[in-house]
Design a binder for these strands. Structure first.
Lengths: 338, 338
DNA sequence: TTGTAAGCGTTATCAT
DNA sequence: ATGATAACGCTTACAA
């Protein structure tokens, strides 16, 4: 039986002032005499008063809440983003509404719309929602995208190049001359982006890069590709993500194909568990909790901006800010001499 | 520049009825004539109307939001709980506020208090908050605890026995006669609980169980215990969680101590990545997303109950409902003959 | 069936 | 410095 919370009227009655005075004293201290301020604070403590953020939000339009949509909380990348976002939010007394694992782009959009009225802004991490819908949504509610670039909407994306370049250079040193890329799903912006950078970095370092056909980014797929990989004549495989890489690595191990002696394997994302394998999986990852925090800060700026109308620094146009995060190559046992 | 959302007044104006009629039509259809119902729905669609849940909540006291506190979203157990909870919540049009990775019990309690006014109820998953504080909080706000039993507060806990018994029986079949348990932190209710069951199941199956001293449940700790484990004269180690088990397994591997030939290892929790190791880690886990969903359903019942005052089925007393979830033993390569 | 009006707890704009 | 009062958008008796 939850007991009713105390309101500013209860305090007002106890202290003998008007409710509006209580509100002033409690929201932005300094607008009220030191004496009443003290008495009000004492009364608040005595009654165990806590501001009703919902009632406040009706008036102010601010619930101090942000929405965060992630495709899959079981994948380390999104755990990091959530962690970074939640931490950054808590620092400024915001809380985070999480939506996870949606069946379709439509389900994602439904969720975003469902929470729209209950949040001050939304962070969309690698959503499947089409560009146009996101832009539309961003027009209604401050929005930041993560892991995806989208003209007109501010975004936080990893800068894939540094990590890839480091990995490729190291591979060249180890004598690799031909590498095979295993992509993710064909429509993935991120998969394409990784391939482009990989090819370019390979050319620079004197490594020829070839690509397998696109497909699901799962362990199962990695395992299924084992034959093709061995027949490819490549000494190095770089997979779109760690799951594929781990699936391949385990399959080879089950067949007693030595890694990295016969084949070197490198993944992407540095997921938790990528170093549970033996040999431990070499991988290219970005500090994604940094990304989560950065996304929150960009969103907050937008939220502030949307009040001082006209003062906002950016208009969400094509030049919308984008924050790049350098990826890092984690050299581990699954990469060895060619 | 977010544009203002349409309100029921906009619809009312467009259709030419009173706002209250719109409210009736949109909240619980049937209280209004079929004709106006249609016109109102059309207008709503045209104006892209979405109910302002915040404004509604001021009146009804229901935000259709629940709070979920987890210690660590990087750990698979809590991912499962979050997933199950979010899914169950979404089914009934609720959304989930997540708090994660708190520095201290105090920080956890602060978070719970912070969200109190913005949620209809709270799920606390293995919180560090002391019993008394949880009970206090549960008096103010519908609350369900997960992974912990606490007189007076409804809870969802895994039933450790079935999984442990299955593992121990199998171990006995494989010839093991002495097993070493590596506990978690001394104050952990869950660690103690696992040990108690383990000891009992061992006695039944003719396996003597001994325990190492308590400590951090980390990979590092597992690695550090390698010497003690090898010197213990046990042929089987059961660790409080998978991280410890994986740390130990990897350390042994680095030393070329064969697993499971020289030593069998079993973990707890069946975390994602527990089968990335080689050999794959045998482990005892519970269907925790089931737990998340169940917690939501119990919470919802409580939330409903707290309105029909006096009608509530349970009083939160010592007999508060508790839902047990059977654990399962996942037999994998790290368990072999003694 | 529909309209009127009060009120949810807060903040903000007036006066005083 | 403080009080009275009008919103905020919605729900809900109560009237009509």
């Amino acid at each position: 039986m939850p007991k009713p919370q105390a309101t500013i009227y209860d305090i007002a009655a106890l202290v003998g002032v008007n409710a509006s005075t209580v509100s002033r004293a409690l929201s932005r201290p300094g607008r009220v005499s030191a004496a009443t301020q003290r008495r009000i604070e004492d009364a608040a403590r005595e009654l165990d008063y806590h501001v009703n953020t919902v009632a406040r939000a009706v008036k102010t339009g601010r619930l101090q809440t942000i929405g965060l949509l992630v495709p899959d909380i079981a994948y380390a990348v999104y755990q990091d983003i959530l962690r970074g976002a939640e931490r950054a939010a808590r620092e400024v007394d915001y809380v985070v509404l999480v939506g996870e694992e949606f069946r379709s782009a439509q389900a994602e959009l439904d969720w975003a719309r469902r929470v729209r009225a209950a949040v001050d802004g939304v962070i969309l991490a690698s959503p499947r929602i089409p560009d146009a819908r996101i832009r539309e949504f961003a027009g209604d509610k401050p929005t930041v995208v993560v892991n995806r670039v989208l003209n007109g909407v501010p975004s936080v994306v990893p800068d894939v190049a540094p990590g890839v370049r480091a990995a490729v250079v190291r591979a060249a040193e180890l004598g690799h001359r031909r590498l095979l890329y295993i992509p993710g799903v064909g429509s993935s912006w991120m998969s394409r982006s990784r391939w482009d950078i990989l090819e370019a970095a390979g050319a620079e370092a004197g490594i020829e890069a070839v690509s397998a056909p696109p497909g699901m980014p799962s362990r199962r797929r990695g395992a299924e590709l084992a034959d093709d990989v061995l027949a490819s004549g490549c000494s190095l495989v770089i997979a779109f993500n760690d799951l594929i890489a781990i699936g391949l690595l385990q399959e080879l191990q089950d067949r007693s194909v030595p890694v990295p002696e016969r084949l070197s394997i490198v993944g992407f994302d540095n997921i938790r568990g990528s170093d549970f394998t033996s040999p431990r999986l070499a991988t290219i990852g970005a500090p994604l909790n940094e990304a989560g925090g950065q996304a929150v800060r960009m969103l907050l700026a937008r939220i502030e901006g949307s009040t001082d109308r006209g003062t906002a620094a950016d208009d969400g146009g094509p030049g919308a800010p984008s924050y790049g995060l350098a990826t890092v190559f984690h050299e581990r046992g699954s990469l060895g001499p060619a």
